[in-house]
Structure formats: C-alpha cells, structure tokens
Design a protein around this nucleic acid. Structure first.
Lengths: 350, 350
DNA sequence: GTATTGAAGTCAAACGATTGAGCGGGCGTG
DNA sequence: CACGCCCGCTCAATCGTTTGACTTCAATAC
C-alpha cells in the first residue's frame, strides 16, 4: 500500500504552497483559474485522496448523518429507510447506516462511535429495552437525535411515529363491523412503545365494543418474525379454536399466522380473519392478500429526516412530536364472520 | 451546544499533562492505577467525548469497515448482511452500511467518502453498471476491497459469490426431470454478473437437454421486484400460454410471477411450475411454497468478511475468488408436468 | 557514596488540512 | 511619480490526539 498522497506532496510537485493547493482544490477564488486546473490535474494524476479526518478536525464540521435501525430483518424498516435516505440526499448529506440487530450494545456502540467520529446527527429506531437515561448520557446535549418508528417514552427527544393505538382501533372496528366477536392478539411484549400502544389500541377498541379478549387468546412473542407468528397462531388454534378474528402486531407476524392457518386447514378470510400492521409490499403478493394497517412510511421517514435537519440547525428548539395517522387497507384475509356465535350476537344486539 | 471537552480541558481539571490524560484513558501502564481511575472519573463527569478524527489522524488507523449494498429492498441482501456483520463484530470492527439504491453515483460517493474518512476496507455488492476501471480509479491500490454476491468481471478484486450458473442448471434439471419441456425465463438484463451467469446456466442446461427457449418465452425485467415479476409473467402467459415451467432470476421475481398466475387462474405447481433463486425466508411462508435455488448466504457472507480481513492484513496477496455451491430446495410451486406436449415428449424420447 | 534502574510523568513534534494575516508586485489614480 | 489597492499567493498557527524522547525522583545495587 503506497504512502498516501498529501497536500504537501502536491505542493512539492506543483511548486506552490500547501495552502495554495488546498484552496485550489476547493475552488477558492484567491487562486487563479489556470493554477486551479493545473493543480487539480496533478492531484488526479498522483491519486490524491482528500483526508476528511484532518479537514474535519480543522474545520469542526461534517456533512454525514447516521441512522441506526433496531432490526433490518423487518422489511418495514427498509421502506422507512428509503424515504429517509432520499430526503437526506436531497440536502447533500451522506447517510451512514447501522443494523442494531435488536441489541442494545450494538446500538450504544454505534451511537457512541458516531459521536466520536463526528456525525451531524442521529436518527434512531431504538432497540427493545433502550434506556432513555442511558442514551441521554451518551448523546448529552451535544448530538442532534431524532427517533422514528418507535418512541422513547419519558424522554424529550424529537419523534416521528405512526399513531399505533389508533391504527389498531381501525383494525378492530373493521373486524367488528364484519361480525367478529372472538378476537385473538398476536404481538410483542411490553418493551417497545409500538408493542404497548398497539396492544392498548386493540384492547381499547374491544372494550368500546363491549367485547372481551381473555388471556388465552393473547399470545406474546419474543421476536417479530414469520416463524414467531406461525407458532403463536398454532398455539391459539389449539387453545382457542373458536377465535375468528386475529389481530397481529405486525405483518411479519401475520404472515406467519396465515401459514399456521394454512397448515391447520383453516380458510383465511372465510373461517378466520387475520389483520396485520405495517402494510408490507409482501402483503399484496400473497393469496389471499393480507389486510393491514398501512403505516405512512414515506411521510414518517420524510418527517423524521426533516426533524433532524431542523434540530441540527437549532439545537435548542423545543422537542417536536409528529404522530402520523395510518389507514386501513383491506384485502382477502379479512371477511364476514361465518360462525353464528350466540354469545357474540348478544353482545352485538345490545 | 456546549463546547466539546478535550484532553486539554481534562488536563487542566486534573492538574496533569495532556499526554498523561491521553495515556490514562487508554490504560497505558505508564500512568499509575490511582491516577488512571481519577482521570477517568473526571472525564466521565465532564462528559468527555473521544475525538476519533484527531486520534485517527495521528495514529493513521481505523477499526471500521464499510459495506455498500446495491439495493436493500431485496431481502436476500439483508440475509447476506447479517452473516457479514456478525463476522466483523467477532473481530471487533464496526460496520458502516450504505444502501446504494442501484445507483452508481450513490455507490461511488459512498466509496469515495469511506476512503476519505478512513475505513479499513470495503465490502461491495456492486450496483448495475459498475465500471471496474472507474472503481479501480477510486480505490486505487490503497483500499482493501472485496466483492460479494455479484462479481465484477474483468477485475482483479477478491470475490465471494454463489455459483450462479450452476444453481440455474440444478433448477432446469429438476424441472426436466418432472417432465417439463416448455420453459420460460424471467430475469434481468445483462448488466450484472448474476443476471448473465444465471441466464447462461439456464440456457446451457436447456441445450444439454436438447430443449429450446424461443425469444417470446424470455422476459427481461428492468428491476428485481415483485411487481416486475408479475408483469413479466402476465406477458408470458399471454404470449406463450403453453409454457409449463418458469425459471426466475430471483425469488422476488418469482413471487410476482406466482401472483400473476393466481390472477390468471393458473394453479401453481400443477398447471404451471415456478422456480426462483435465493431462497428467501418468504419462500416458505406462502402457499404453495416456492421452490428455489438456495444460496449459501451465511457461508458467502462469512467468506466475504474473511476475505476482507485477510486483504486488510496482506494487501499484496493474489486475488481470491470463492465460489460457493447453492442447492435446490423443493416446495409446492414445482410439480410434474401435466400437459402431454407431443413435441416435448419427442425431445425427451430422443 | 556513586552508578543504575525503574516508575511516573512531562515535552514537543508530529498527523493533514484550513485560514486569517501578511506580502510583493503590477496597475490605476490623482 | 507616489500612493493605495487589489491580485495571487505564502506563512504560520491551529484543530485534538498520540508518541518517542526526555526528565525527575526515589529506591536499589555494588
């Protein structure tokens, strides 16, 4: 590996001072047009590589932002990411990404690293179990930080999220409208704001309709994956075969649940209705299609990016919280309730 | 935003020299145990943040590596990524990621940036249309670079890839064994090594069996997405309804193709067999399951990471090329050929 | 009692780029 | 013709860390 070419080398090669070279490369008007092109030519020839560490040390600025995502395995985050990235590209920033694999240590070390390395700001979809205090400790007041997708409750960071509770209420309302009375819930634990809020929305809506959801119809999963959804659904089918409507925390879980129903010979959208959350692209590429709460990923991504850009400009502005309304997308996985459950009808008639 | 705390500030606060502080924080034995803990305590108290730019400028080393992925929308890359990341984490490196959105400019600017910023090395799944010469121009001999997933033909970089041609031959062989004679191909253009190699494998295998694949049964798509696969399949169904076996460049395309068959009322795995490539997790979570060429993502990812680590250690070693064999995973989307196509049988009998 | 060693620091020179101040000479102006 | 001014460049200090050379003091060796 040859020694790296520096401004000094270029200065020697061109016969001007180091400062002149530096200015020439950055098109400073103090250097004559002729010399600028000459110097640039030689720089290219000698394979000069700008040393951003040195420059940034001197200038004290950067133009990169960092995004840390709790887990890229869920395609919904890729969709968020795309919106965020395009917004940042528009403003000329380079985006550095980290996949935290739902591991607080990876997340913390990435955040710390970005601080040390000098990133203009951080966009975070926090991993499960992120401690607001701990994170505050790391970023102090020094580092513009915005959360998206998941909230960090009890913190004064900026946020851009979906109305999670509201989305689930839409789902339940629709299923009730279709005549369903026996609900099941497949979802995560209580460690993320999304898990809490979506479950809360589910419960609230059921209560509003005067419907119960006994514990044996609630299945908590450790991770958000198709496989977890499949196992949860299988458990519910065994334990509570009378369930006709299943609300899932996410599409990934719902897709697993659908698989379990296939395996059990239950016809989706007829004998059992399933609804997910996120509206992954995949949801419309299966048969029957998966009904889902469509999160405004574009809008949330753009909002998150803009919140960060604003925060970078004004670190002392009050914390902002953008909550964006989702909407329901209906496909074949939901249909009218077929079972004439007397108990259910009673509730309905009342 | 408060001024950043520096070693100098810590030195003043603790009453020792800057060098002593620097050494203390890095646990240099020259500083006494007592002073080390004292200094660390004060550093934490004052919210000291290590300035990696300065440090790295002085030391001339880094411990981060960069990965640039052509397009994260295809889940197969997430699966590659996971393997790569875990391998790097094992060796204590931080992984910075870039999603190139299949755009050569984004890729080039990321690569350049990583060079400027000082990354230990680069792992690249190159975007379509990457020019070996141009890339060589950017990285020169200075930057350890390894390609994975896609090759860059005509270059002397290290590579870790799947045997793309071989994989497609497995697929064709299986379909021929099931009695199929009328094949269609859904795949990308000629701009990536994977597109070329997989199509070559497909053609080679057909020729070996003495089977044709006329142009109207070959559908080129501009991008690798479900939607592109759906449209391609719809076109084939219209143009060449006698086709009974469809080989797709990727699972994403195959999933779209399956959707198109559903829409056209063609029963998958009965009237028409479809086979994909990659073996996404999703392939086993639809009904019927998608038969696919299973790429050894774990193995390739680990190989790529190790190639890069080796390359960082020895920049002058000869270029290595690891080609890892895929295997076939059969699910419900492939089945025996039902149509008694005389022409096909003739070919078979010969 | 002098030389040697070692522990625990200090000092100053880097690393590579940036930048405000300075400087020489040619030109326009009065 | 002297003065100021602008052009086009050079100088030197600086950003925050690291590191090899050097110092100081005390303890040990002979």
């Amino acid at each position: 590996m040859a020694e790296r070419v520096t401004l000094k080398n270029l200065a020697e090669a061109t016969g001007v001072s180091v400062s002149a070279v530096s200015m020439a490369l950055r098109d400073h008007p103090r250097i004559s047009e002729a010399k600028r092109t000459e110097i640039k030519r030689i720089a290219a020839e000698m394979g000069y590589i700008y040393n951003r560490q040195a420059a940034s040390l001197r200038r004290g600025t950067t133009d990169s932002v960092s995004i840390c995502i709790n887990d890229l395995h869920n395609p919904v985050f890729i969709e968020f990411l795309t919106a965020i990235e395009s917004e940042f590209r528009r403003s000329g920033k380079l985006v550095l990404l980290c996949n935290a694999h739902e591991d607080p240590e990876i997340q913390a070390s990435f955040v710390r690293r970005m601080l040390e390395q000098g990133s203009a700001g951080l966009l975070l979809s926090p991993v499960e179990g992120t401690e607001p205090a701990e994170l505050r400790e790391i970023v102090r007041d020094r580092f513009p930080t915005v959360f998206f997708s998941r909230m960090l409750e009890g913190s004064d960071f900026d946020h851009a999220i979906s109305d999670d509770a509201g989305g689930m209420q839409l789902a339940v309302d629709e299923l009730v409208r279709l005549g369903h009375r026996q609900f099941a819930w497949i979802g995560g634990g209580q460690r993320t704001s999304t898990a809490r809020a979506r479950y809360r929305g589910f419960k609230t809506a059921l209560e509003r309709h005067g419907l119960p959801c006994p514990p044996e119809q609630v299945e908590r999963v450790a991770e958000t994956s198709r496989e977890a959804g499949r196992q949860a659904m299988a458990a519910i089918l065994k334990r509570a075969p009378h369930v006709t409507a299943v609300v899932c925390f996410s599409d990934l879980l719902a897709l697993g649940a659908i698989m379990a129903c296939h395996e059990a010979g239950r016809r989706i959208g007829k004998e059992i209705s399933i609804i997910g959350h996120d509206d992954l692209e995949e949801a419309s590429y299966i048969e029957p299609g998966l009904s889902s709460v469509k999160v405004a990923k574009e809008e949330i991504g753009r909002a998150a990016a803009r919140l960060l850009l604003d925060r970078i400009i004004d670190p002392d502005a009050p914390a902002a919280r953008e909550v964006i309304a989702p909407r329901l997308v209906l496909r074949g996985s939901t249909g009218p309730c077929l079972s004439a459950d007397a108990d259910g009808l009673n509730h309905f008639a009342r």
